[in-house]
Design a protein around this nucleic acid. Structure first.
Lengths: 219, 219
DNA sequence: ATACATATTTAGGCTTACCTAATTATTTTT
DNA sequence: AAAAATAATTAGGTAAGCCTAAATATGTAT
């Protein structure tokens, strides 16, 4: 049985590993979980005993197969709930994270499978993040940052690399939504800002900071 | 801020008060929450300090207005989730309690109001228990036990007074559902068993134990 | 290679929510 | 009303998860 705290650690270790690769440091975990580093050291030692992670003293941690499976289960639950909150309850994409953080810890495999079915087996959550299946497998996709595109590229906006409220609300305000077609009209060499045409209609200037966090697939 | 443990105590105190009236004893709470009586004494003292309950040493506890409001909020959440689980996810009425026990602690007023709206503002849960509104108010109804009916009475089955899996599954097996019309054809004086006609079709013999736990309204 | 800065761990504590065993109150039976 | 039974409380403890302060590693710059 994994506790709420363990679930949160596993999820965060998974995320940090995805982002930075290799071992996850005590301080990174502490910062992201908003828990004191000393407490983290303490806790990961116990998790290592339970074989949820493997821990190299002063080096960091990695997930064991068992730990990864649990982490993916939590991520699956979280993303399914987010889909439900947005599609069925009418929440906005920037409003669902905190609620899903709670719902993801509800323990019932049957519930999650029924929810998945009810939602029509969605492949991604409202931010474009992929939803692992019940066995923890992802479908593969080939999205990349819009920043890696060139002038003339025509792509589809499929996800965000930054989940902050302010970024999500900026996109909403700018009327940029998942699924939109983006045509890179020009790139300003000086500041890497992008001039894009959205859905063949509106033209918009996006800063490098914004462009970096838009994930796209080539059409 | 009320903790998960406090929410469970408040809910249980509310339920026991509904059932037995007056003060709720330490032992009743201990038994129903499956917590040692000594721990209960300890905990209710702290809850009394927080003004969630009023506590008379060795006598028992009652809810304060604040405590009752919170208890009703939890009960509201629980019952709304049960409606969702049955109506939208396809669970059976005997399968939803444990899941709702977890979902009821998810903290977001906005979530519950959206859920209520999504469900079409239901008045009762799948067992016929009334759902308090956001302010903790119930609509009034005049249901009574079928045991208090007489031969010739025609009533509607609107709720159960017993929520055990075995009772709920017995009713399912006997094809007796909320909303059914029950006609009391005869009552056996010796054992108070009832011969009833269901929806003007099937005739069935119900033991006193069953009859006692069927809640009905006179049509 | 040494000194400094940063990251990590160790040691000692705290709070919440539980427990058991012993004691004291209350209720029931005789 | 006293004895016996039951219920409630007190006292002392535990585990999970957190904390701060101090000690020790590790990494970086000179």
């Amino acid at each position: 049985m994994t506790s709420l705290a363990e679930e949160n650690y596993l999820k965060e270790i998974y995320k940090l590993h995805e982002k930075n690769g290799a071992m996850v440091s005590t301080s990174a975990l502490a910062e992201n979980l908003k828990i004191n580093a000393a407490s983290v050291t303490d806790f990961i030692k116990k998790m290592a005993v339970k074989k949820l992670i493997s821990y190299k003293k002063s080096k960091g941690v990695t997930l064991t197969d068992q730990g990864r499976t649990i982490a993916l289960t939590i991520i699956r639950r979280h993303r399914l709930w987010e889909v439900w909150l947005v599609n069925n309850l009418g929440f906005k994409w920037h409003e669902v994270h905190e609620i899903a953080e709670q719902l993801e810890h509800v323990m019932s495999d049957e519930l999650i499978e029924q929810l998945d079915k009810h939602l029509g087996y969605p492949k991604a959550d409202p931010h474009g993040d992929l939803i692992p299946d019940a066995k923890g497998r992802f479908i593969k996709t080939s999205s990349k940052s819009l920043l890696d595109c060139e002038e003339g590229d025509k792509v589809k906006f499929t996800g965000v690399a930054e989940h902050s409220n302010s970024f999500l609300q900026y996109l909403t305000k700018s009327n940029i939504k998942l699924g939109d077609e983006l045509l890179v009209e020009s790139i300003e060499e000086f500041d890497k800002s992008f001039q894009v045409k959205i859905n063949r209609k509106e033209r918009r200037l996006l800063s490098k900071e914004v462009v970096k966090n838009l994930l796209v697939v080539v059409e």
